[in-house]
Amino acid sequence: MVVIAFNRQTASANRFAAEIISPEIPHCDDPTLHCYAICIPRKFFEERYRLYVPDIPVFNRKKFEICSDILKYMNMFAFEASKNMQNSDITLNANAELITHWIIRSILGESMDMRSISNDYSVAKAQHYMEHHFGEPITIKRLSELGFVSPSGLTHKFKAELGVSPIEYLIEIRIQRAKIMLQRKNMTVTEIANACGFSNSAYFSSCFQKRVGRTPTEYQRRYRTAQK
């Protein structure tokens, strides 16, 4: 069972705390906390997990972050299940596949790759460009030109739909990419800062600590210690 917890404070955030626990364990004893509990058949889950890595670890209350966009697909699943429409089994199976892969990728630290792209053309073009060019210098002017809108117009669209400015969205992409590099690659903090598009390591450390709660060096050290 995967439990995704959220409340009023995190409802507008783009990431939620998730945890894998046994279905027999009470999953929400806090009355102020709302959550989704997703029960996935073990065989189904393990078959999909092995598509990514050959060995499946023992998930002893495994905690991880998951992108809030998954809620769209879980709500879609719940809506489809409640309507009992013709061929709903086909769409429900398709949604089950998507949700399961989303969860697995999040467990493996790749949840940022699962974010939904906006239905708004200019926002989607900016999102797509930032995802692929996060390591390069990017300006709001360049992003607005891609979607044929003004810089102020693009900023308004981003804040209205995503709750953040385009540059704040870009920094979030860079931070999440940096976290993956800190976990997986033998790179210095300065090298990771450069690879993720930060002007210098001091600015990178400041942005990282503000959003993650610890410096890149502390994050790397704690992650490696937890893996031992």
Rank of each mutant, 00 (worst) to 15 (best):
N84S: 12
S118Y: 02
G153Y: 03
L71I: 04
I99N: 07
A202R: 15
D89M: 10
L92S: 02
E161D: 06
R115H: 01
N194D: 13
S152F: 02
R115F: 09
H133E: 11
R177W: 03
M76F: 08
L108F: 06
A81Q: 15
A96V: 06
I167S: 03
L146T: 01
N93G: 07
A96Y: 05
H128L: 15
S111P: 00
K141P: 02
E80D: 13
A202L: 13
G153W: 12
K157I: 03
K125P: 00
L98V: 11
H156D: 12
I99F: 11
D89L: 10
M114A: 07
I138Y: 07
N84P: 02
Q176A: 04
Q86F: 15
G153K: 03
N194Q: 14
L143W: 07
Y129T: 05
Y203L: 14
T188A: 03
A126W: 03
P137D: 14
I90T: 10
R142M: 12
S150T: 15
A195Y: 06
E131M: 08
M85G: 07
A78W: 05
M76L: 15
I192G: 02
E131G: 01
F77E: 07
S111Q: 08
L71W: 05
H133M: 13
K125V: 03
L154C: 07
M76S: 13
I140W: 02
V164T: 12
N200L: 01
E172I: 02
A193Q: 01
R174E: 01
P151Q: 11
N75W: 14
K157Y: 03
L154K: 01
D120Y: 05
G135Q: 09
A202D: 13
N93Q: 13
K141A: 13
Q176R: 12
I90Q: 07
V164K: 13
D120A: 03
F204L: 05
M181P: 00
I171R: 09
Y121H: 11
A78E: 04
A124W: 06
T91E: 07
Q127D: 00
L143Y: 01
H156K: 10
N186Q: 15
T100K: 06
Y121Q: 10
M74C: 04
L92G: 03
S144Q: 05
K179C: 02
I90P: 02
F79H: 04
E136G: 00
R174V: 05
P166R: 04
I167M: 08
V123N: 00
I107S: 01
I107R: 04
E80M: 15
N87W: 11
S122N: 10
S150L: 05
P151C: 07
E131W: 08
V149P: 01
S205L: 06
N95F: 14
A126L: 08
I107M: 15
N93W: 00
N200Y: 13
S199H: 11
A202I: 15
N75M: 04
T91S: 15
Q86E: 12
S152I: 10
M181E: 09
S88G: 00
A178H: 06
A124R: 13
S111R: 05
N84W: 10
E97H: 09
I167D: 02
N194I: 12
A96H: 03
S122R: 04
I180K: 15
S82E: 11
H132I: 09
H128M: 11
E145D: 14
E97P: 00
P166D: 06
K83P: 01
V149G: 02
A94Y: 09
L162A: 05
R105A: 00
S205Y: 10
I103E: 10
L170H: 04
K159Q: 14
S165C: 02
E97W: 08
N119C: 02
F198A: 01
